[in-house]
Each structure stands twice: as structure tokens, then as C-alpha cells.
Computed example of a mutant assay.
Amino acid sequence: MPSIEPGGAFPPISLTLLTGEDMTFGAGHWHLLVIYRGAHCPMCKAYLTAAEALRPRFAAAGFNLVLASADSAERTRPLLSETGYNGPVAAGLSVDQMRELGVHMTPAGDTGAAGPFAEPAAFAVDAEGRLHLVQIGNAPYARPDLEALLAGLTYDRDNAIQPRGGAR
């Protein structure tokens, strides 16, 4: 499993949003990529509803909040309708992409998922495409706290705080 480190370049992962646009991280803007488990997960439904409530605050602070999962677009769209999430979402995260990000993967098993999926994670990418924050969970309840991330990332960016926990 590749190790991605804060302060290093975000991997050149190509994500396609449900709108058909290709997602480029960095490119003059800060991004927070949040990986969620998928439509099979009841905790994700509450999480996406909460993310929608915070999305305007992320935008006002200058952060592009992007969600992604291994679910297909066909499984993702009803989830977005149910939760009201209206921000950028990438569906179809591949096993190779999950490995490149270093997230924990879970086989579908009897979860109701259509295939292997990623456990919750978050990656903050600065305007130059460098990884500022990595938060990788290994269980459904180990989710990134979006409100805390918004406050912390805003503070770090506004005070030119460098990424912590990089190369050892």
C-alpha cells in the first residue's frame, strides 16, 4: 500500500464527478476530499446530510468540499436525493484508486454494498496540490469531523501553518 504523506504531492488521481467534470486537486484552490462508505451505510446518510448543512460554510471559507465513494453513479444519485447533498460527488472510486490513497478497504460481504468499498477518510489538498492533511479511518464510526476540519484548515491556511506529520 503506497504511503502518502502530508506535505507531499497529492497523487494524480483522476476523479470524474457525477456532473461529468474531471476533478483536479490543487489548481489554485484548496480542496477537502472526503471518502464515504456508500449508500449501503446508514451512518453515511446522516453524514451526507450534515455535510450539506456545512457545505456553504466550506465554500465561504474558500474550500471546495468533494465527496467520493466506490458506489456507482446509479447507487449514488438516490443517496444524494435522500440526503439533500448538492456538492461535488465522484462515484466509482476504483480499487486501484483506493489503494493509491491508502484507505482501508472492506469487501462487500453481507453489507449490502455492490463491491469493495473504502472506509471513511479525508484528504486536504492546498492550492499548489500538496497534501495538507490525511485522516484515514478503519471503521464506519471513525469519520472525519467536518466542523473541526473546517475550523482547523481555515486556521492553518490563514496562518501559513505547514502540514504536520510528514516524512519520518
Rank of each mutant, 00 (worst) to 15 (best):
G129V: 07
L101C: 09
R99S: 03
D110C: 01
F10Y: 08
A27G: 08
A59Y: 01
A46Y: 02
A73I: 00
D110T: 08
E128P: 00
P163G: 05
D96N: 14
G38F: 09
A121W: 12
M43A: 14
L54Y: 03
D158Q: 14
G26F: 08
A124Y: 00
R57W: 01
A51G: 07
F123W: 01
A51P: 09
L153C: 07
M23V: 05
Q97V: 02
A91V: 00
S72K: 05
L150N: 06
L33Q: 10
A108V: 00
P2H: 06
G38V: 04
T83K: 01
N64M: 12
L93A: 01
A148C: 00
G92E: 05
Y85S: 04
L33V: 08
L65W: 09
A151F: 02
G165K: 05
P140S: 14
M98A: 15
P56I: 07
A9L: 03
G26Q: 14
C41E: 09
A53E: 10
Y141P: 01
L15H: 00
L67W: 04
R55C: 01
P88W: 10
A118V: 05
H132Y: 05
G7S: 06
E147C: 03
E82V: 10
A127F: 00
A60L: 13
T19N: 15
H40C: 06
E100I: 08
P42F: 14
T154L: 12
A91E: 02
S3D: 09
F123Y: 13
R143L: 05
E5M: 09
G112T: 07
A122S: 13
R143G: 06
L133T: 09
M43S: 14
A114M: 13
P140W: 12
S69M: 00
A27E: 12
V134P: 05
N86M: 03
I13R: 02
T106E: 14
G8A: 07
G92H: 02
A61K: 12
V103W: 02
M1A: 08
E147L: 09
F25W: 10
V95E: 15
Y155N: 10
M105R: 15
F10V: 04
E52A: 09
R164M: 11
G87H: 13
V103E: 06
Q97L: 03
E52F: 01
N138E: 15
D96S: 15
E128C: 00
